[in-house]
Nucleic acid binder design. Sequence first.
DNA 1: TCAATAGTGTCTTTCAGACAGTATATA
DNA 2: TATATACTGTCTGAAAGACACTATTGA
Lengths: 246, 246
Amino acid sequence: MGNRGKASPPPEAYRPDDYPRPSVTVDIVIFTVLDGDLKLLLIQRGEPPFEGRWALPGGFVRVGDAMADRGEGLDEAAARELAEETGLPEGSAYLAQLHCFGAPDRDPRMRVITVAYYALVRPDLVPLVQAGSDAREARWFSVAEEVKPDRLAFDHAEILEVAVERLRQQLEMAPIAFELVPATFTIAELRAVHEAVMGVTYDPGNFRRRFMRMITDGIIEQAPGKRPTGTKPAKVYRFVRPHPRR
Amino acid sequence: MGNRGKASPPPEAYRPDDYPRPSVTVDIVIFTVLDGDLKLLLIQRGEPPFEGRWALPGGFVRVGDAMADRGEGLDEAAARELAEETGLPEGSAYLAQLHCFGAPDRDPRMRVITVAYYALVRPDLVPLVQAGSDAREARWFSVAEEVKPDRLAFDHAEILEVAVERLRQQLEMAPIAFELVPATFTIAELRAVHEAVMGVTYDPGNFRRRFMRMITDGIIEQAPGKRPTGTKPAKVYRFVRPHPRR
DNA sequence: TCAATAGTGTCTTTCAGACAGTATATA
DNA sequence: TATATACTGTCTGAAAGACACTATTGA
């Protein structure tokens, strides 16, 4: 980028300060899996536009005011928002940038460009969530059963759609399922996460074998103890780098 | 952070207009493959900062000034920049959003957040490129041989790195190689593209079989004619939806 | 005729999916 | 004892990689 930037063939030398600037926000699609169901944290808006509607948590990126204060980076802003909205300590959830949305009319008030992130909260942390969240109403919704995309504020339905798509894709490519189970877990629990996210069922035997390979690959290892299941107790495993952020 | 309205747990009701806003640009990593080599279009900067250094083409997103004019969307801005910088008609290259970069100090002058895109230009269009590009010096660089990441302006080395990574990933997942060959192509040409992008060599026989499957899948089909190769002429194929944009 | 590339065939390994079978806990 | 789930084994088919082989052109 550079100066010049404006119109098609104009020569050079634009002082960027001359350009109108958009507001920039981060919005976060916060997922967890509870009881074998993919859930999403939404916040009820307290004022217009979309008053009373449910929306993704988010907020403005702190940009600073000039030379002195340059504000925060995008990942930083997202981590801060995530912590603020959930009450969880920073770094306790997986967080990754998703996509940038900037349709001119996505906010009726003004031009707002948002950098969407998605976050994965381990289910054992969910009980801690409500605690820290601020005044506004926050609730977990079942993505499959409860979320009504056309009732979401702004373009958040579109963001959610991209997020689910990306989550599914990542789940098949990266060792990311561990971000959605407690520190130790059984194969069945891991399978439940996959099934909840992908919206399919997996053959228990085949699924197990697939993850047994991760043991020989050194990605997961058996942990001490067993998990009672109602019938035969199951072995528990843990992710080798115990719940890595990145 | 010091916007006057800091913001951590504050109740509500910020008039977004109160917040300082960043400049927002789009930067485009424009790839092509020429002579079996992955190339990148860079532009030499004519003024500080980074005067004389090579940079990704890009420019400011038109944001409009108020109610009346809301400006353009991000994809729109990227398509416009791409057209302006290459002289190619809009829509003649594949274009997809890559990632958003917003480190506070990525532009020494001021706070600038950039939405990075990557573009794929078919090699048969490359000769048309210089024509339309404006006064500034633009040149194709071999990504493997010529680009010196630490000589690039701003954080463009980082953007490039992410772009190459994404391109490789996409090449293995999506029918995207067709964006880097002429409308009709031989298997060897397609293989050359894959080899250039991935930086490896493929067994010709195995590679062929892999793409023969795309015929039965209806993704590519044989086209009339043969391509002389110096020895035995090769069959030519075409992408079934002839070079789809999206 | 030779060199070079186009194009085909075969063998092996890996892995996913279907599915049967065994083991071990609780009710 | 019954049953539900943990866990193991087997078969099949798809696909990738290594590699040998045939076909067809230009020089």
